[in-house]
Design a protein around this nucleic acid. Structure first.
Lengths: 221, 221
DNA sequence: TAATTAAGTTAGATTAATCTAACAAATAAA
DNA sequence: TTTATTTGTTAGATTAATCTAACTTAATTA
């Protein structure tokens, strides 16, 4: 079945929203509309259409969620997105914060052969430049059990494995702090007043990072 | 100025048609519509729109041609198309006849940085896999003075430098004959009955090729 | 539980790209 | 030079994706 550019974006958005919140693999109309930058009325119409096509489960005034077919389609798009990001980063020397925008366009190119050839060319990467796993051609994706920086106790060290927030502002901030995949971070102190952390990046002098920041970095001990 | 996918395709089509016929750098409505696979009425509407945007010269019931701005836009699209074809062929191991279709999609990706990085990655190629020149970022393109196989006299030899016809059937036929860029061809005889040629490909045993075939291959002595 | 607020839907309009059918202009032929 | 043919245009409709404004349902709270 052929999906339009827009339909693909709705599926992808739904997948992203659903995979973030554990217990609730579904999204509301306003939530989706806000995420996609359209009005709720627009989203409602699209929900009906996607339901017709068997890609989502949805009832009037209810939540929306992906069917198995819808999920599979979303994974294929995510796969393309992440492979292209890897290409841009590894081969074309794009920086961390630049890859997303262009990959948003490239992910919609229709050619199975292109994707598999690209994957081969990149050497079957497991993760994209942000540390997110790349789904396989069959839709398989390693379930990533992720720990965030906030989970660490005082005195513990870790390595950055991925970013939770992929906004340009965040990625540029990371670049300014000299943080990328693999960077070592040690928690020196937790400030009880506002929950912020004193951390040492690559064993440099300590600096303070906000809760929001510590919640946005995936790490491994 | 932002161009839609469709507008880009009209400009590209117009450029192709115009650059083929020497004396007449303009196209008719039916001609364009047929080329693009739409109805003439649709083309008329688009002509008005493109004129509004200053991309074409056009008057009711008249021919259509590119303005300087329109031509520049067309060249940028052609540049992207040919760089992507080169990428697919050189890096992803696509065959001659497969590159076009995917490049038709890739050429519409909007990112100047992507194009220049890609060009750099490919080592600033001058020609695409079909032997066609790749426009530079500023729109410059080497004026290709091309000779076709039909131009050769009996006994003369040449090397294939490009294909005039990029249809899949033709490219696959070339593949079957073992012809690609650089292949040596010698004209053994011209059959006066139908204008067909007896040729030797890479000094192999002679075989007959049609006028249409000989008109579709660009060669150099 | 009744009232208020938040969330979601419907109806009607808009824009881009397309179509068909009917019409008009330009060109070619008799 | 009048007619026939080709070429091109206009008008009106359609589809996909979007909007605004008005309305409905669900959830919250007093």
């Amino acid at each position: 079945m052929m999906l339009s550019y827009t339909e693909e974006n709705y599926l992808k958005a739904l997948f992203k929203i659903c995979s973030q919140c554990e217990g609730k693999p579904e999204a509301g109309t306003n939530e989706m509309a806000a995420y996609l930058g359209v009005k709720p009325a627009t989203a409602t119409d699209m929900f009906k259409k996607l339901k017709e096509k068997g890609l989502v489960d949805y009832e009037r005034y209810g939540k929306i969620s992906l069917t198995e077919i819808g999920k599979n389609n979303a994974l294929i798009i995510l796969r393309k997105h992440r492979l292209w990001e890897t290409f841009l980063y590894q081969k074309l020397d794009f920086s961390w914060d630049e890859v997303h925008e262009v990959a948003e366009q490239l992910e919609h190119i229709q050619s199975e052969k292109l994707v598999s050839k690209l994957e081969d060319f990149l050497g079957y990467p497991e993760f994209d430049p942000h540390g997110d796993p790349i789904p396989k051609a069959n839709g398989d994706m390693p379930p990533t059990v992720k720990m965030i920086l906030s989970d660490l106790k005082i005195g513990e060290s870790c390595r950055v494995v991925a970013v939770k927030d992929t906004s340009v502002v965040f990625l540029q901030y990371l670049k300014r702090l000299g943080i990328s995949i693999g960077t070592k971070i040690t928690v020196i102190e937790k400030v009880s007043f506002d929950g912020s952390l004193q951390v040492s990046i690559d064993d440099q002098e300590a600096r303070n990072v906000s809760v929001k920041f510590a919640d946005s970095l995936f790490v491994a001990k």
